Amino acid sequence: MIPYGRQSVDQTDIDAVVEVLQSDWLTQGPTIERFERAMAERCQAGFAVAVCNATAALHIACLAADLGPGDWLWTTPNTFLASANCGRYCGAGVDFVDIDPLTWNLDAEVLASKLEQAERDGKLPKVLVAVAFSGQSCDMRRIAELAERYAFTVIEDASHAVGASYAGRPVGCGEFAAMTVFSFHPVKIITSAEGGMVLTNRPELAERLQRLRSHGMTRDPQQMSEPSHGPWYYQQVELGFNYRITDLQAALGLSQLARLDEFVARRRELAARYSRLLAHLPLTLPVAQVQAESAWHLYVVRLQTGRINLSHRQVFEGLRAAGVGVNLHYIPVHLQPYYRDLGFAEGDFPQAERYYTEAISLPLFPLLSDEQQDTVVGHLQRLLQ
C-alpha cells in the first residue's frame, strides 16, 4: 500500500534522539528551548512555545486570546475537528465560514459578508481560526484587515504549512495573525513524533502560553502574589494544563527542521508533477492563490462527477483496492453529530459540502518516488477512463 503520507526519518534524526536519551534531560530540558528558538528564527517570529500536539496549541492560543463563555470562535468547515473544538474547550460558541470554491480555504469575502450581519446581530467573533488548508494560507491580508475593523483575534492554524510563505514572508512571522499554530504529527511537513507549537510576536501572549502549557505555574517573582519562599518556590496563578513537549520530541523536531527546505522542495516537485500528469483527466486540480506559496502537505483532487461513470466512493475504494492509500480531507465539521446537536445541518455551508462529495487526497510525501507516483496516476486514470 502506498500511504497518503508518512514521515521521513534518517540516521541524523535517530542520532539526535539517542543523544538526548543519553543525556541528563528527557522531559523538560534545553533541547525544547533550542527547538523553539530555531523555529522562531526560521519563521521570523519573536517567540515560539512548543507543546505536546497542535490541538493543545490551538487550545492555549484561544485561552491566551481570552476566549471564553459567551464568546464566539469562527473557522472553516473544511478542517480537522481540532480547529473548531478548541473553541468549545474554552466554553465558547463555534460557527463556520464557507470555503472558496477555487482554493478550498476559508473564503475571505464570505467572511466579510458574515461579519457585517454579525455586527448587526451583536454576535461578532472574538477569535477566527484561519486554516492553511493543504499547506496554503488563506487570504490573510484581507482577513487581517477585517480583524482590525471588527476587533477579533486571528489565529492561523498552519498545521499543514510549516515551510510555506505568504506575501513573501514565512508563514508564522506574525504579520497577519496574532498567533500561528504548527503541527509536527508524523504525516506533516516535519515531525517530532507528536507535537505542536504556537508562534507569536507579542511577549504577553508568549508569557501566558508558557504558563498555560504547564499547569498555570510560574517561577517569575513578578507574576507572584507574594515574595518567593526560596529557590524551590513556584505559584499556580491560573488554571493551566500539562501540555508540555519533551526533550526527546524536540530533538527529533530540531533535527527535522534542518531538512525542511529539502522536504518542501520535494513536495513542491511532486505536486507540480501531479498537476502535469493529471491535467487531461476529469478532475479539478488544486489552485494556488497569487500571494501564497504552499508547503504542499496535501495534494487534493476533486472528481468531476458529471464526466465519469463511477461514484466518489467507488473511485476512492477502487484506489484503495489497488494499493493506493488515498484519504479524504475533510468531512465538513458542521456535519459531525456533535455539531449537528448544536444546531448545524446539511445545506448550511454548501461549498464545503459539495467539496466533500468530490475530494480525494492523493499520496504525497518526500519519500514518494516518481515510480510510485506514476502508479498512483495510472490507477486513477484507469478508474476514470
Rank of each mutant, 00 (worst) to 15 (best):
M1G: 13
M1V: 08
M1Q: 13
Y4C: 12
G5K: 07
S8V: 13
Q11S: 07
D13N: 02
W25V: 04
L26N: 14
Q28K: 12
R34M: 01
M39S: 12
M39W: 03
E41A: 02
R42S: 05
R42K: 14
C43N: 12
N53C: 11
L58Q: 07
H59W: 14
C62E: 07
A64Y: 07
L67F: 02
G68E: 10
G68H: 02
D71Q: 11
L73F: 11
T76K: 08
T76Q: 11
F80M: 13
A82C: 07
C86N: 10
C86D: 00
G87K: 04
R88W: 08
R88L: 15
Y89E: 12
G93M: 13
D95V: 08
F96A: 05
V97G: 06
P101L: 08
W104V: 08
N105L: 11
D107Y: 04
E109A: 10
A112E: 15
Q117S: 09
E119M: 13
L124F: 02
P125W: 14
P125M: 13
K126D: 04
V131C: 13
S134Q: 13
G135K: 06
G135P: 10
Q136W: 02
C138G: 05
D139V: 00
E145N: 05
L146M: 00
L146E: 12
R149C: 01
A151Y: 00
V154F: 09
A158M: 06
S159T: 10
H160A: 15
S165M: 10
S165F: 11
A167S: 13
G168L: 03
R169L: 01
P170K: 03
V171Q: 04
V171D: 05
M179E: 12
T180C: 06
V181N: 04
H185V: 02
I190G: 12
I190C: 15
T200E: 07
N201I: 07
R208I: 06
L209W: 09
G216F: 08
G216L: 12
P221G: 05
P221N: 12
M224Q: 12
S225T: 14
S225Y: 12
S228V: 13
S228L: 09
S228A: 14
H229F: 13
G230R: 05
L239T: 15
I245K: 06
A251R: 02
L252G: 01
S255F: 04
Q256E: 08
R259I: 08
D261W: 02
A265W: 07
A265Q: 05
A272N: 01
R273A: 05
L281P: 03
L281Y: 09
L283T: 11
V287W: 01
V290E: 15
A292H: 08
A292W: 11
E293F: 10
A295W: 04
Y299L: 11
T305M: 15
T305Y: 09
L310C: 00
L310T: 05
F316C: 02
L319Y: 06
L319Q: 11
A322L: 12
G323M: 05
V326S: 08
L328M: 14
L328Y: 14
Y330K: 03
H334E: 08
P337K: 10
Y338A: 13
Y338W: 05
R340A: 11
D341K: 15
G347Y: 02
D348R: 00
F349L: 12
P350R: 07
A352D: 06
E353T: 14
R354N: 14
A359I: 10
I360F: 04
P363F: 10
E371A: 15
T375E: 14
V377A: 03
Q381G: 00
Q385W: 10
